[in-house]
């Protein structure tokens, strides 16, 4: 398992300029398998995040918390890395750059910082790239298996479920794995495969690269990448007859409308949202409606108290009582 994780890290290094990737290749193997983010900022020391804590990387590939010892990232490093990331073809990533990031082969995402240029139709492009945030996507197959029995009722019925957690706690990973299991079905869990429609507004769930999902999201899954939730829901209902619609990061009033549309059509919803606990959800105006209408039957709360993706609690949406453990 570890070797595969190291392999993923080294694949990502292919997209980093030689000067930096030589250094990053030298960090200890035990750390390689846990790197979450590699951050390049013009004029600042090379910075990586491992298990939620940050380190600087020295010229010799040593990890340190001492900023002064870190290898300073230069303009050339950023430019070369950007060339590799965009495959020497900025024009091919025009649309993606408007969203502020580029998806790499393997589903990894690179966030861009720089000078944003506006055109007639909103953001046109980003120029003078000054920082790059390479987020290493790690597929965690099977992390949601233990949740299946809480959110399903019978072989092809799933409750409307909302996954709630603060950022960087594994919401999207959890949702992606749920999609995979529901879509493939699982004989051991007594689950028949369902048609799942995924609205992947931020290209995170399926990690589509060149039209091909980079993550295993199951064999009965249809993806609408880059589509907003309201349009996506209507498109899926009309054309794809899904049993379940999955969406990431709901929150706006339009998302609530989308969910209402889906429910009207008898489709089940899987969604995620930023938040800490139930009170936090109630304080969000749009979510309050959904809570009061008891749309969601299960709320799954995640945190990182015992590592990323720890299930804190599962709450029944009708009684608002915990059903976990």
């Amino acid at each position: 398992m570890d070797e595969k994780e190291i392999g993923i890290y080294e694949d990502v290094l292919e997209f980093i300029s030689l000067g930096l990737s030589h250094i990053l290749k030298r960090i200890p193997d035990t750390s390689k398998s846990k790197v979450e983010e590699i951050r390049l900022r013009y004029g600042a020391p090379l910075n990586i995040y491992i298990s939620n804590s940050d380190y600087f990387v020295t010229e010799e590939g040593r990890l340190t918390t001492e900023a002064s010892q870190g290898r300073i990232v230069g303009k050339k490093d950023i430019m070369e890395t950007f060339q590799l990331i965009s495959n020497y073809s900025v024009y091919a990533f025009e649309e993606e750059m408007k969203n502020g990031f580029i998806t790499l082969k393997g589903g990894h995402r690179v966030g861009l910082g720089g000078k944003v240029l506006y055109g007639v139709n909103g953001i046109e492009t980003i120029k003078d790239i000054s920082s790059l945030n390479i987020r290493i996507a790690r597929e965690k197959r099977g992390v949601s298996e233990k949740l299946i029995k809480f959110i399903t009722d019978g072989p092809n019925k799933v409750y409307n479920t909302l996954i709630v957690s603060p950022p960087q706690c594994g919401k999207t990973t959890m949702l992606r794995d749920l999609i995979r299991i529901l879509s493939n079905g699982d004989r051991l869990l007594g689950l028949r495969g369902m048609k799942v429609g995924v609205i992947d507004e931020r290209f995170e769930l399926a990690g589509v690269y060149n039209g091909m999902p980079q993550f295993d999201i199951g064999m009965r899954t249809d993806v609408l990448a880059g589509c907003n939730k309201r349009d996506g829901t209507i498109m899926l209902i009309r054309a794809m007859s899904p049993d379940v619609i999955a969406m990431d990061e709901i929150g706006s009033i339009h998302d609530v409308e989308a969910i209402h549309e889906a429910i009207k059509a008898g489709i089940r919803i899987l969604a995620t949202i930023h938040g800490d606990d139930l009170d936090d959800l109630i304080s969000k105006r749009s979510l309050k409606i959904l809570l009061e209408e008891k749309v969601f039957k299960r709320y799954i709360f995640l945190d990182n108290s015992k590592g990323v993706g720890t299930v804190k609690d599962i709450i029944d949406g009708n009684t608002f009582k915990s059903i976990y453990k």
């Binding site: 495959n87 073809s89 024009y91 025009e94």
Partner: peptide, 12 residues
Amino acid sequence: EIVYGANPLPEA
């Protein structure tokens, strides 16, 4: 290849 196809350079 570039303006209409938007193919990445190595491929183009």
